[in-house]
């Protein structure tokens, strides 16, 4: 772990720079430790794949002292790094017309037929590595190598809410209608973002997700 100033009111903690579930579990364990600890100066936390940004109030504390407080929390017990296997969320997906907007492009890129793409996409458990881009957008990884595919050259202006897409070695779900460049292969009926609820977010970072075709 390395600590870096990130502006004058946040710090960035970099873990080994790799997309890896054990490293991501460490990021989340530290994020949870910071949330659980009474660090009054902390203002926000943004966990990502292998880094964690933590905001502080610069009128109350400086970078060095804030870093020290966080270092003193660093979880040392390896059991804290376990993934949250208790949160396995099974998500139904319509991989059919009219929801699979980019299936033919994915077929071209991968050289596979639609049923094979669906088979690969539903064959593994994914980890919610982080949320970002839009409120509630989940970055899930990693895809089986067979269905890696690049983003669309020109992003679509409107991707429907709950569309399931592919980008590089990641898969993701759109929480609301938005412009976007991911290759859309289906859509889930499961609302993953509901602004009317007390907690609008269906997923948490660290959740395990398994897709099945309906």
């Amino acid at each position: 772990m390395t600590f870096h100033p990130f502006g004058d009111s946040a710090l960035l903690i970099n873990f080994e720079q790799k997309i890896d579930e054990v490293i991501n579990a460490r990021v989340i364990a530290l994020a949870e430790a910071i949330e659980a600890a009474p660090i009054l100066e902390a203002t926000f936390i943004t966990p990502a794949y292998c880094s964690l940004a933590v905001g502080y109030d610069p009128l109350k504390i400086g970078f060095e002292d804030f870093s020290k407080k966080i270092k003193s929390l660093t979880p040392t017990d390896p059991s804290h790094f376990a993934t949250k296997k208790d949160r396995v969320l099974e998500i139904p997906v319509y991989y059919s017309e009219p929801h699979c907007l980019d299936m033919s492009e994915v077929m071209q890129q991968t050289g596979l037929l639609a049923p094979e793409i669906i088979e690969w996409h539903t064959s593994v458990e994914y980890r919610v590595y982080m949320m970002g881009f839009l409120p509630g957008f989940v970055y899930l990884g990693s895809l089986p190598k067979q269905i890696y595919c690049s983003r669309k050259t020109t992003p679509r202006l409107k991707v429907p809410a709950q569309s399931v897409g592919l980008a590089g070695q990641q898969t993701g779900i759109y929480p609301s209608e938005a412009p976007g460049g991911w290759q859309i292969i289906g859509r889930t009926p499961q609302k993953i973002f509901d602004s009317g609820k007390q907690n609008p977010f269906y997923f948490m970072t660290g959740d395990i997700v398994k897709f099945y075709a309906v």
Partner: peptide, 11 residues
């Protein structure tokens, strides 16, 4: 690119 990581206003 870097592996996606936090951005804040002012970055």
């Amino acid at each position: 690119e870097i592996i996606s990581s936090a951005t804040i206003p002012g970055t």
